[in-house]
């Protein structure tokens, strides 16, 4: 795929960032003293338990919200608002695609805002749809596609934007297991082909290890970086053999241990009131209360049965 943007972009540097929501007695410190550096071309997975402020951190990285303290720099410039070099793929593909636009127009829409001509927009959109394996659905509406396909559209939109940095917020949390594996491999191959920087936030430790060159574990109250782990699994990864590799399981064990340690102190001191989760940290998508993934056939079946 032909790309116009420089691959990899610049480094994203997070320095001593803190984020607080609310005021006075309602004040809730979500993140404190968090530092992180992502270099061009890296695939970094940020993993942490639910409610740890993963989404908050990602929104800070995308420039959608500003940290309360500390700085985030992209290259030499401070990141205070969304940047042309950074594309975001949200968890909620249903909510982030425009239902009144055909798939092709959805992918091309951000380009329209950049003043790209229609023919060029459509060409790029088709190219990106092809890259995510959706060459022939450009004329459909999002609701005509399955959940996994809609998330591919959202990824294609991110690619069409031609940003060297792709931020992904639990992008595969709401799709079924098979689609999830396919999307993970798709992301790996896109990154290999395009040389882009990917920062992916997830609560799934296996996914983080499988995808990342590096896994950053965040946790604690308030949240900070608790571990930073290089993943030495090479670039060729396979859903079956990589996951069975002892190095994979070793990394996984270490990460789980670190996350458990990070959670433990908060659980031992119940005297401290449990901070309310930030509004953006309400567990959405993924698994619903009853433990059935939102898009699984099982859920549809139960829903039908209830009806």
């Amino acid at each position: 795929m032909q790309r116009h943007a420089k691959t990899g972009g610049s480094s994203l540097v997070v320095e001593d960032v803190g984020k607080t929501f609310g005021h006075g007695t309602d004040e809730h410190r979500v993140i404190e003293g968090l530092s992180l550096r992502v270099d061009p071309g890296e695939f970094v997975c940020i993993v942490g338990p639910s409610g740890a402020g993963k989404t908050t951190l990602l929104r800070c990285l995308s420039g959608l919200i500003r940290p309360t303290s500390g700085t985030i720099r992209y290259g030499d410039e401070p990141l205070t608002r969304p940047h042309a070099d950074i594309a975001v793929v949200f968890q909620d593909y249903r909510g982030s695609l425009l239902p009144w636009m055909r798939v092709r127009d959805n992918v091309a829409f951000p380009l329209e805002g950049m003043g790209v001509k229609r023919a060029e927009r459509n060409r790029r959109a088709e190219e990106c749809l092809h890259a995510v394996g959706l060459a022939d659905v450009g004329d459909k509406y999002p609701w005509q596609l399955s959940g996994g396909m809609q998330q591919r559209v959202a990824i294609a939109r991110g690619l069409a934007y031609e940003a060297p940095v792709l931020l992904m917020d639990e992008p595969f949390g709401s799709v079924d297991a098979q689609s999830r594996f396919d999307l993970e491999d798709l992301t790996l191959s896109l990154r290999a082909d395009l040389g882009i920087t990917v920062i992916l936030v997830t609560h799934d430790i296996d996914e983080a290890v499988y995808l990342g060159d590096r896994v950053v574990v965040i946790g604690g109250r308030p949240t900070t970086v608790v571990d930073n782990l290089q993943v030495d699994l090479g670039t060729d990864r396979d859903q079956i053999t990589t996951r069975a590799d002892h190095r994979f399981t070793d990394l996984r064990t270490r990460l789980l241990t670190r996350i458990r340690e990070a959670q433990a102190p908060a659980e031992r001191t119940p005297a401290r009131p449990e901070p309310k989760p930030a509004p953006d940290e309400t567990p959405s998508g993924g698994t619903a209360k009853d433990g059935i993934p939102k898009d699984s056939p099982a859920r549809e079946k139960t829903a039908r049965a209830v009806r």
Partner: peptide, 21 residues
């Protein structure tokens, strides 16, 4: 929805285009 508004923010869709589309 806030989700769409945020997506449009992150892709820096200009105001007039956002209003129209």
């Amino acid at each position: 929805t806030p989700m769409i508004a945020e997506t449009m923010d992150s892709y820096r869709v200009p105001r007039h285009l956002r209003f129209r589309k």
